[in-house]
Computed example of a mutant assay.
Amino acid sequence: MTVASMTGFARREGGDAQQTWVWEAKSVNGKGLDVRVRVPSGLDRLEHEVRGRVPKVCARGNVSVSLSVERSERRMQLQVNREMLDQLVRLTRELREEVDAEPPRLDGLLAVRGVLETVEEPEDEAAREAREQAMIADLQGLLDDLAAARLQEGRALNQMAESHLAEIARLTEDARQCAASQPEALRARLRKQVEDLLETRTGLSEDRLAQEAALLASKADVREELDRLDAHVSAARELLADGGAIGRRLDFLCQEFNREANTLCSKAGDVALTGIGLSLKNAVEQLREQVQNIE
């Protein structure tokens, strides 16, 4: 499986002798899958087709699908309005009893407005069914195009995410190699903090002093945070390699990345280590922005 984006666009056109149509689909970021459909009146069956097919190609995102239809010129035929013609014939018979006049001729009756109508030739059920099947085929092609667009965008997101992960890994190693995080520097800082503690708090018991020293040591040691950052980088790379609907899990990892970077900054007792921590936060934010688009 490969990484897919939640953003994409596709368009398909089709038609037959009677109608032309255009399908359009677009998708944007979303927490889950939300499908919105707009089709002309009388084509409710196609809406059901859309709602049934979209989840097969999209796991997440706000997906909008629309269909517009334009009717072509159809053959017309003449039709007699029998009800109106019967009324006219009945009236002429009634009036002939009151008025001495020649009976109306057929061409005269047909010339009365509304008696002769122009209507479209009726379309049989087989033609309508064939058209709907053609529309459904174009719908599937549209969704395949949308999935391909999301995959293409996903490949670009994958590359950018890998780049940001490489930067996070590099900064983590820089922090590990930073002099302020070395055991010698940690011991020297701890010694200084204990000395300050002894000067400001006289009369501390041995147990209390040991507790304070242990607390200071844990606050100064960032190796655990650096190990967790390495583990998160490995986990994120495995997810990208697996592909599929991994966006939510990557978003959770970004939260964990940010938590470790914040802790690193809070523990840093050195300008250089603080600078690395701030750079880490920036790299994590850049990764998060890309992850927000991954399905």
Rank of each mutant, 00 (worst) to 15 (best):
residue 1 M to W: 05
residue 2 T to F: 07
residue 7 T to C: 02
residue 11 R to Q: 10
residue 13 E to M: 08
residue 16 D to T: 07
residue 17 A to M: 09
residue 29 N to T: 00
residue 32 G to F: 09
residue 40 P to Y: 03
residue 44 D to P: 06
residue 52 G to I: 07
residue 56 K to Q: 14
residue 63 V to A: 01
residue 65 V to L: 03
residue 65 V to E: 01
residue 68 S to C: 11
residue 72 S to W: 08
residue 75 R to K: 14
residue 77 Q to I: 11
residue 80 V to E: 04
residue 81 N to F: 03
residue 82 R to L: 09
residue 86 D to K: 11
residue 88 L to M: 09
residue 92 T to A: 15
residue 94 E to W: 11
residue 97 E to G: 13
residue 99 V to R: 07
residue 102 E to L: 14
residue 108 G to E: 11
residue 113 R to S: 10
residue 121 E to N: 10
residue 123 E to S: 12
residue 125 E to T: 09
residue 135 M to T: 03
residue 138 D to T: 00
residue 139 L to Q: 01
residue 142 L to Q: 02
residue 153 E to I: 03
residue 155 R to A: 11
residue 160 M to F: 13
residue 168 I to P: 03
residue 171 L to V: 05
residue 172 T to G: 12
residue 177 Q to R: 13
residue 178 C to E: 04
residue 188 A to E: 15
residue 188 A to V: 12
residue 192 K to R: 15
residue 193 Q to I: 14
residue 195 E to S: 13
residue 196 D to C: 12
residue 197 L to P: 06
residue 198 L to N: 15
residue 198 L to C: 14
residue 199 E to D: 13
residue 200 T to L: 14
residue 201 R to K: 15
residue 202 T to I: 13
residue 203 G to Y: 04
residue 204 L to E: 04
residue 205 S to G: 06
residue 206 E to I: 11
residue 208 R to D: 08
residue 208 R to K: 10
residue 214 A to M: 07
residue 216 L to M: 12
residue 217 A to E: 04
residue 218 S to P: 09
residue 221 D to M: 04
residue 222 V to I: 09
residue 224 E to A: 09
residue 229 L to C: 04
residue 229 L to G: 02
residue 235 A to C: 06
residue 237 R to K: 08
residue 239 L to R: 06
residue 246 I to D: 00
residue 250 L to Y: 03
residue 252 F to Q: 00
residue 257 F to G: 03
residue 264 L to R: 05
residue 264 L to K: 06
residue 269 G to E: 06
residue 269 G to K: 10
residue 276 I to Q: 08
residue 277 G to V: 01
residue 281 K to R: 06
residue 283 A to K: 07
residue 283 A to I: 05
residue 286 Q to L: 10
residue 286 Q to A: 14
residue 291 V to Y: 01
